[in-house]
Nucleic acid binder design. Structure first.
Lengths: 238, 238
DNA sequence: CTACATTTCCGTACGATGTACGAGAATAGA
DNA sequence: TCTATTCTCGTACATCGTACGGAAATGTAG
């Protein structure tokens, strides 16, 4: 194996993956790079979905043999972690904090949502990731700085960040699923008919009423903002 | 195929799966049942994890040939949906509503959390499920009844329930991951060392402080309750 | 009872996947 | 030039979901 090591899931030391600088150059020179491989995997996931990210397809896109990938990542799980950290690099961490931690946190959540909408596979991939990479850690650092005015202890800050991320991921996953349903009208119609049939059986009066009085459909953006504000405004520093 | 039809993911009509009563008995009598197969898959997931749920292992546990399963569920995705709805049957929906919708919602969330702790694969499986089965719908009906005093419109109620479920799933997934980390002290130690190394590089002062002042560790239960209360108390009926 | 239609059971087989293995090629230092 | 090191990647294998189709069991029609 070249100068990486491995990381993420199984029995691999994260230090060896994320913070090995550059090892002494010996032997054959690498023909590809972890960066290029990760980027190829990301574009593959962006365009064809996460399930299209197979070692063979990634290798084909890079122009490498399948097994060559294993010189840059010890297994697929690690490659997924690399992908997550790769796109996390798109998150800006410039010092734009206002000192109003609630407002700052809302901006952070909106940044996360935008990232996840740009990479719809991200919510699903997040649930498996183990060890945060440098980009993820940079953003975490940013979020912790935003939370500084709360005066909360470390554990509490970390928990808030984890919950916020999980909330955003959950919401975006839901958003994406609904958007996909709109794009497949047949399936949506079938589901609607099914729910209508259930509601018509008389044993689901609340469901029946809900379906008959849906209310005005809001934009996903508005719904997100509303829930986000509720969640964050509900936080206190006690 | 026997008297099911299919459901859930791809191009299968949910009506045909969930609400077909019993078809006229003709031909060979089924040797197994959808119930038994689903139950076997659930215990398999409970004991060995979701990734251990393969058609072959489920069939072996039932005592059937592998392909016999396809007489009861058209594909694995459907079997996963059946599993989800199966365990959702453990959720009580007896009329225990108090009329205080916030309190009722909190009880509902605690029920969901308990269910997910009993079936740790549930949060992961939920992210893929498409069409709710009868047990899921019964619980949804229960939740909608709890939300009745809010006077919100249908869409809003459904969104609150979806968000609540996503929140619980996210939290429990995090809980489970942390519990697993505690059970593998080697890996946890490696991760801790990695984070310490990152914190020591001088470019992550907030992380360094957080790691040095972690605060008192709360029970997962307490953390869950705290976040839940914040979320629900933050909801309003405007 | 005999045919036949229907439904279930399941052995075999196929394509796809992740990845272990190891032979060969390229490079750096001796 | 020799040797140690590192990367490349073809082959091979276990495992997965599941398509196919014949055998077996059951109901109905004659």
């Amino acid at each position: 194996m070249p100068r990486d090591g491995g990381a993420g899931a199984p029995g691999v030391d994260p230090q060896q993956l994320w913070l090995t600088p550059v090892q002494p150059r010996r032997g054959r020179r690498p023909a590809y790079s972890r960066e290029a491989i990760t980027a190829a995997a990301v574009t593959l996931a962006d365009t064809e979905g996460l399930e299209a990210v197979t070692m063979r397809k990634v290798a084909a896109r890079v122009g490498a043999g399948v097994m060559s990938l294993y010189s840059y990542a010890p297994d697929k799980e690690t490659l997924l972690n690399l992908m997550v950290d790769h796109v996390s690099g798109e998150l800006p961490t410039a010092n734009t904090l206002t000192g109003d931690w609630r407002a700052d946190l809302k901006v952070i959540a909106h940044l996360q949502r935008a990232l996840m909408l740009r990479h719809p596979w991200l919510p699903a991939a997040l649930s498996t990731r183990r060890v945060p990479g440098p980009n993820t850690l940079a953003f975490l650092e940013h979020a912790l700085a935003a939370l500084r005015p709360t005066g909360l202890d470390g554990t509490a800050k970390l928990e808030i960040f984890a919950q916020l991320t999980a909330f955003v991921a959950g919401h975006v996953a839901h958003e994406i699923a609904q958007a996909a349903a709109s794009q497949a009208p047949d399936r949506a119609a079938v589901e609607a008919r099914y729910l209508a049939a259930v509601a018509a059986d008389g044993r689901h009066p609340e469901l029946a009423e809900v379906l008959s009085a849906p209310g005005r459909p809001l934009t996903p953006e508005a719904t997100f903002t509303r829930f986000l504000n509720r969640l964050i405004d509900g936080l206190d520093t006690g």
